[in-house]
């Protein structure tokens, strides 16, 4: 198991709660400062995880989406007071809707980036572990599915070869023939998978599946650093949420834009959110630094 970064080595519960918090916050808060923080830190962490590939992801998926959302919003949303010009169909283009478009685009891009980080950090076995806590049977099904997929893929390749060796005219196949062949390959694959799944169920029964009181083993241990990380996340999260409940983090876009500075406590919330978003990056960099200084 290759570990992508230091934060991935934390307990799955820590990983999951963290991403749930960040993605939730990113989707809920439309306050420009919060959006900006979430976007910047998202880019940073994705960079830590993926290195140079991160740039490619950003250019290929994030930027187009960003611009698309930025344009679509003012085209359909005509709320707002400052009218810049009129579309040919008579609808107004407003300053507020443009700003809102920008905000929505930022939100989207940030969420997309954080989800990309989530996919990277939450490997399948972490998922299975988490599901195992709530819905153990489903989690087993998930684990079995992941076990079968590479097996069946290999089988499908073999079947394709075997079927191809049964055909006389292998070259110059029409699309229709290709489709027909693909379907017969698929159909044999299904037969094979179903017939052979019986072995697996025998093997499960032979090893006591179905007895009462099944436990779930995991290789994950909840260590001190997990507890610490959770505590810090909880504190920072609390700061953000309490501010939100007090209405400090709302921002009005329509009919006219309005947001205000609300003093130190609000600044504290920004700082807390910023630190919260940077936790994985900080952990990773700190560890890297420690290693280098030890050497």
């Amino acid at each position: 198991m290759k570990q992508t970064d230091e934060f991935s080595g934390f307990h799955p519960i820590v990983n999951f709660i963290y991403f749930a918090l960040i993605i939730g916050f990113s989707m809920v808060f439309m306050h420009p400062v919060m959006l900006f923080i979430s976007l910047i830190t998202g880019i940073t962490y994705h960079g830590v995880l993926k290195g140079k590939k991160s740039l490619l992801f950003f250019a290929k998926f994030c930027l187009p989406l960003f611009f698309l959302t930025m344009i679509i919003n003012p085209a359909f949303n005509h709320q707002g007071t400052i009218i810049l010009l009129y579309f040919p169909n008579g609808n107004p283009l407003t300053f507020e809707s443009m700003i809102y478009g920008l905000a929505a685009a930022t939100m989207l891009t940030a969420v997309l980036l954080w989800f990309a980080c989530f996919t990277e950090v939450m490997s399948s076995d972490k998922f299975i572990y988490l599901f195992g806590k709530i819905i153990p049977v489903m989690s087993l099904v998930l684990s079995m599915t992941l076990r079968f997929i590479p097996l069946f893929k290999k089988k499908i390749d073999e079947i394709r070869d075997a079927q191809r060796s049964l055909k006389k005219e292998a070259v110059n196949e029409s699309i229709l023939n290709k489709l027909k062949n693909a379907i017969s390959v698929f159909s044999i694959g299904v037969s094979w998978a179903l017939e052979h799944s019986i072995d697996v169920s025998d093997s499960m029964k032979a090893r006591g599946y179905g007895l009462k009181g099944r436990t779930a083993f995991s290789i994950y241990e909840f260590k001190r650093r997990d507890r610490d990380a959770l505590a810090i996340m909880f504190l920072l999260g609390l700061l953000v949420v309490s501010n939100a409940l007090m209405g400090n983090l709302t921002w009005r876009y329509f009919p006219s834009i309005r947001g205000k500075y609300l003093g130190v406590y609000q600044t504290l919330a920004y700082t807390a959110y910023f630190v919260l978003c940077l936790i994985p990056t900080i952990i990773d960099k700190a560890e890297e630094h420690r290693w280098k200084s030890l050497r």
Binding site: M144, T145, R147, F148, I149, K153, G189, L194, H196, V200
Partner: peptide, 15 residues
Amino acid sequence: ELVLIAALCAITIAS
């Protein structure tokens, strides 16, 4: 039943 569901899902994706 579990194996059957897992096998069906897996073959669907593997296909």
